Every structure is written in structure tokens, then in C-alpha cells.
Simulated scan of single mutants.
Amino acid sequence: MSGHRFSPGVVLAERYEVKNFLAAGGMQEVYVCFDRTLEREVVVKTPKAGIKDRRFRRGAEMGARVHHHNVAATFDYYEDADLTFLVEEYIVGLDLGRRLETEFVFMDPSLAAHVIHHIANALHEAHSVDICHRDLKPSNVMTSADASINVIKLTDFGIAKLAESEIAAELELFEQDQSTLTTSNTLLGAVPYMAPECWENWKSAGQPMDIWALGCVAFHLLHGTPPFGSGRQAFMNIAKLLSGSPLQLTRPTWFGKHKNTEALENGLWGIIEACIQVSPAARPQAQDVMRMCQQLCYATAGRKIGTITEYPGTYANGNRGDFGRITDDVARRRWFFHLTEFFGQNGPEQGQRVSFSVYPGVPQDRSAPVLRLRR
């Protein structure tokens, strides 16, 4: 625990007992704590040592105004001369950024639509009470660790206001010395999802910046990378847009290969193109994006994790075909799948890890979709 502000067993404000350190960002440290009063686990977020900013309180107040099942609830806020922290709902799982790094190469259309729809719901709720998140990115979306991603919650409304001051300062430094971009964790994390107007005047950017960021996250889910790259590459690509270069977004190469999801792919791409518009005025409002998501037809069946144990499959006459079988991790059952239901940059191979849903079929139940995983 060396270097962390609090050690296990420390009790904050005579109520919150620190259980363990959870994570750290550019502006905060995060701990899992036990709320002795209500007897539940919570998350405590505190500014890193040396950071003191009234925006932390204002941000916490903003977060507490948003009540929705797709937003991590803000429970409490504490401040005295020596200590500042906010208390937030504890979500067991991983943030979306971590899952993209370690689990998903990209997401199939149904899973991507599921995630995008829930984030859009969260933004609509925030925008409806005149709150702009200002730091929407995969690492600020918490998800349950299950294959179906049943729980999706937007977090860090309380930290976004604190990060705002640092990002604004870093943008000023970047204008003077572009090498600062490589040393700023806060700015580096925000850049791939940062709308063009933020580079011109960060403080005046409003809710349309959240819509741009949602489009970039959606692109990332389907492509496996953000639309304009990361770090310096992202900045240079956005700078070209600001100088008048045409906006060019390329569809994933696998779009159109699966006829049963072609309409869904087109619907998702329509949302991405609507959100990623250089002019803030050209972007839809959150309620419009939510309605666009409601028009999508996507599968929500539960998912399993397994391994491809046979591909290609063999017919009774000994001939091989474009089908195979998956063995799931839990029941150790084998499930049939066809090549047309496989989503991956390379074709199915024995030993590949996949997530999949199962539907009744004759003569065998069918797995669809089958999504290749990193591990």
C-alpha cells in the first residue's frame, strides 16, 4: 500500500472503514470502504495529496442530482480542513476501458448496441437536469464483469469538474509546448474522445462535447480503436478537422459480412455519424440519440464464455463444413455454431476464446453471435 493515502483499517469521518485501494487516476485515488452506518460496501474517491479545489465539491453536488440506473449513485460528501472525499455506489466489475484492453478486440453489433444504448440513457438523464459530464470515455463507464455486461453505469460526474481545471491548464501548456501531452495522464486519457471545440475553448464547451464523446466510444467498440487514434496522433487528426479538412470515418472492415446484423450495423453507423460532427450544432441532443438507440433491433440474450474446440466441423459422411463447436466454461457443454455467426478479425480457430449466446435449434441448439475475445 506504499504511496497510497489511506491504508486498510483506517476509518474516515468515523464511518467509512477502508478495505483496500482500488485505483488511481490523474486527479483522484479510489478505495473500497465499508459504510459502518448502513452496513454496505461503497467507493470513496478523494483528490490526490496536494490537490485542493472547490470544483470537487461542486462536481459532487452535480453527480448527486443525477438519478438513474445507468449512473453510479453519489451517496455522500465530506470535507474538513484536512480531508475531502465523496462516497459513491460500489460497482463490482471492471471499467469499460479495461475490458477493451484485456477482453474485447471489438464488439459485435448486438453487444455494442447494448452498451451504447445504456450510456445514451445515462447522458440523457444528466443532460435533462442541465449537467454535462465533460469527461466521457471508456474508463469512466463501469460494467459488471459478466459476459453479458448486464450492469453499465456512467461514473465520475463528481471528478469531472475537478479534472476540468487540470485539462484546461494542460491545454494551455500544450499550446506552448506540445511535448507536455506525453506527460499528462489526465489529458492523454481524454484526448481520443475530446470534441474539436474543446481545443478551441475548453471552458465554453457544453453538452455537445458529451455527444461527440459518445460517438467516439461507439466507434471504439466496433472498430477496436478510437476514431482519431490516441495521444499526439488524435490531437493532430483533430487539428486537421479544425483547419477545414473533411471529416472521414471508415466503417469496420467486417461490416456487411453478416446479413442478419446488416440493418443493425447501419443503424449503429448512423448514430456514430450523427454524433461525430465537427460543428456542435450539427450533433443530435442526448434525447435524440436515446431515441435512435430505441429504434435499434439487437439481441439481448445472456452470454456465456467458452473455447472453440472444433473448427471446421465434420459431417457424418466425413466432409468438412463451415461450422464448429464451442465448449462453455461452466457446464462444459458443447454448442454448435456456424461461420456466419462468428465475429473476429481472423477466422475461427481451435483454442480461441469466445463469448456467445445460445438459441434453440434443430437438430442442435445454435450459438449466435460468437465473438472472439483477446483471452
Rank of each mutant, 00 (worst) to 15 (best):
90 Y>K: 05
44 V>T: 12
70 N>F: 02
27 M>R: 01
11 V>P: 03
15 R>P: 05
91 I>N: 04
112 A>Q: 02
85 F>W: 07
15 R>Q: 13
40 R>Y: 13
82 D>S: 14
53 D>M: 06
72 A>I: 00
57 R>P: 01
73 A>D: 11
29 E>F: 07
32 V>I: 10
38 L>Q: 12
74 T>D: 10
108 D>W: 09
36 R>E: 06
51 I>P: 00
18 V>W: 01
74 T>Y: 06
19 K>A: 05
40 R>A: 12
19 K>S: 02
72 A>L: 00
111 L>H: 13
23 A>T: 05
61 E>W: 01
66 V>D: 04
64 A>G: 12
77 Y>F: 13
15 R>N: 09
30 V>K: 00
32 V>N: 05
18 V>T: 09
65 R>H: 02
40 R>N: 08
104 F>E: 00
11 V>L: 10
91 I>L: 15
32 V>A: 06
108 D>F: 12
91 I>S: 06
68 H>L: 05
99 R>Q: 08
48 K>V: 13
25 G>K: 06
45 K>V: 11
25 G>N: 07
70 N>C: 15
104 F>H: 00
30 V>H: 03
39 E>R: 03
95 D>W: 05
50 G>F: 12
73 A>H: 15
31 Y>A: 00
42 V>S: 04
44 V>G: 03
29 E>C: 07
66 V>R: 02
95 D>R: 04
91 I>D: 02
64 A>Q: 14
112 A>R: 01
94 L>F: 13
59 G>S: 09
28 Q>W: 11
109 P>S: 11
77 Y>K: 06
103 E>R: 01
83 L>S: 11
108 D>P: 06
68 H>D: 12
77 Y>R: 04
40 R>K: 15
16 Y>M: 03
21 F>G: 02
100 L>T: 10
79 E>T: 08
60 A>S: 07
32 V>Y: 04
34 F>N: 02
18 V>R: 00
108 D>G: 08
99 R>W: 10
113 A>E: 05
37 T>W: 08
35 D>C: 14
106 F>N: 02
18 V>A: 05
11 V>I: 15
77 Y>N: 13
97 G>S: 05
73 A>R: 15
67 H>A: 07
69 H>I: 13
90 Y>F: 13
69 H>S: 14
58 R>L: 13
86 L>K: 03
55 R>M: 08
105 V>E: 01
74 T>E: 11
109 P>G: 11
98 R>K: 15
21 F>I: 07
110 S>A: 14
33 C>Q: 00
35 D>Q: 08
95 D>N: 14
33 C>F: 03
106 F>L: 10
13 A>L: 10
58 R>T: 10
75 F>Y: 03
92 V>F: 07
61 E>N: 05
89 E>G: 06
75 F>C: 00
16 Y>D: 01
27 M>K: 01
49 A>W: 12
46 T>Y: 08
48 K>F: 12
32 V>S: 03
78 Y>L: 00
66 V>Y: 07
82 D>V: 12
40 R>C: 10
103 E>I: 09
50 G>L: 12
39 E>P: 02
14 E>H: 06
112 A>N: 01
13 A>Q: 13
112 A>H: 01
53 D>Y: 02
67 H>D: 09
39 E>I: 15
97 G>I: 03
81 A>D: 15
78 Y>T: 05
